[in-house]
Every structure is written in C-alpha cells, then in structure tokens.
C-alpha cells in the first residue's frame, strides 16, 4: 500500500508540470490572438489610408482640412451597424449651411 501511494506521488509531479505547460501554452495562444484582434488606432487607420489612397485617387493631391468639406460622426458609436455620419460641404465664398444667416 505504502509503495502504491509513493508511486502515484511520483507520477503526480510530471502531471503537474504537463498541466502547467498546457496552461502556459493556452495562455500564450490567447495572448497572441488578443494581439491580432487589437483595435485599430489613428496611426494604423492612417497607414491603411496611405495604402488605399493611390488605388482610389491615383497620385492626385488631396487638400486636408481646407474648410471646403467637413464630416461629423460620434466619437464613440452606440451601434457600430448604424453610425450616423454627416458630411457638410461648403463652397468657397459661401457661409456654411449651419451658420445663421446674418
């Protein structure tokens, strides 16, 4: 009997090691997938845009924030499937539409 208990205790050690190894592996896997699903940032969104720009507009110059066009959207969307967005264009020499007329 004593011999049996001793043997199982001997077996217990490597089992614990294997279990720890499994926990470690699963942990790293989840960690890795977490990193892969990381949210986009302004920088990564800009990188996508730089790569995309040529496909859509060729090498045409794009004037940024010139006041001709504006876009509005909530900073954080309540429902990602229905994000209200508004673009406002104003023509040079005309007041923006949202301004009250003088």
């Amino acid at each position: 009997m004593q011999n049996h208990a001793y043997r199982s205790r001997q077996l217990g050690l490597p089992l614990a090691v294997v279990f720890a190894a499994i926990v470690l592996t699963v942990g790293t896997l989840f960690g890795a997938s977490g990193a892969a699903n990381a949210q986009q940032t302004t920088a990564s969104s800009n990188r996508i845009w730089q790569a995309l720009k040529g496909d859509v507009f060729g090498d045409r110059a794009i004037l940024v924030d010139s006041g001709v066009v504006r876009i509005e959207a909530p900073k954080r969307a309540q429902d990602a499937a229905i994000v209200p967005s508004t673009s406002i264009s104003t023509r040079p020499g005309r007041p923006p539409a949202s301004n009250p007329s003088p």
Binding site: Q39, F57, V83, S85, R91, A97, S98
Partner: peptide, 18 residues
C-alpha cells in the same frame, strides 16, 4: 450643402469625406 446618412463601421477607424 449637407448630407447625412448612416454607416457600418467595422473597427476603430477614420471616417473621411473627400
């Protein structure tokens, strides 16, 4: 002079009007 609509956004992203 202005136009509003509703869009789907898949991840954190810039929305651009060109």
């Amino acid at each position: 002079t202005h136009l509003s609509t509703r869009v789907r956004v898949d991840d954190y992203s810039y929305l651009r009007a060109i």
